[in-house]
């Protein structure tokens, strides 16, 4: 069936993508908080500037977004640090 072929092609593309991407060196751990903020916080909605909330508010929001966006712990920590010191 056409659909099965489509799914298989999709799966191959993804696997290849994963393999190629793993060869690139910039892992989450190498990235700065601001870089992770720029790359992740705009994926679902416009990214908020660090001035939008206080540090205590960012602490709560960071847990909310870690849960919602299934961010890794490292990403979430680095982004929170950036947002709390950003202004």
């Amino acid at each position: 069936m056409k659909r099965n072929i489509l799914i298989i092609v999709f799966a191959i593309i993804i696997t290849m993508g994963l393999v190629f991407a793993s060869c690139v060196s910039s892992k989450v751990t190498d990235k700065s908080g601001s870089q992770l903020w720029a790359q992740n916080c705009m994926r679902c909605h416009n990214s908020p500037p660090s001035s939008a909330f206080t540090n205590t508010q960012w602490n709560i929001i960071s847990s909310h977004m870690r849960q919602r966006a299934m961010l890794t712990e490292t990403e979430s920590k680095k982004i929170l640090e950036f947002l709390q010191t950003g202004d």
Partner: peptide, 15 residues
């Protein structure tokens, strides 16, 4: 049950 992880430079998440 949800979470995320990195695999090399890629990421995966599940719920």
């Amino acid at each position: 049950f949800r979470g995320g992880a990195q695999i090399g430079a890629s990421k995966i998440n599940y719920s």
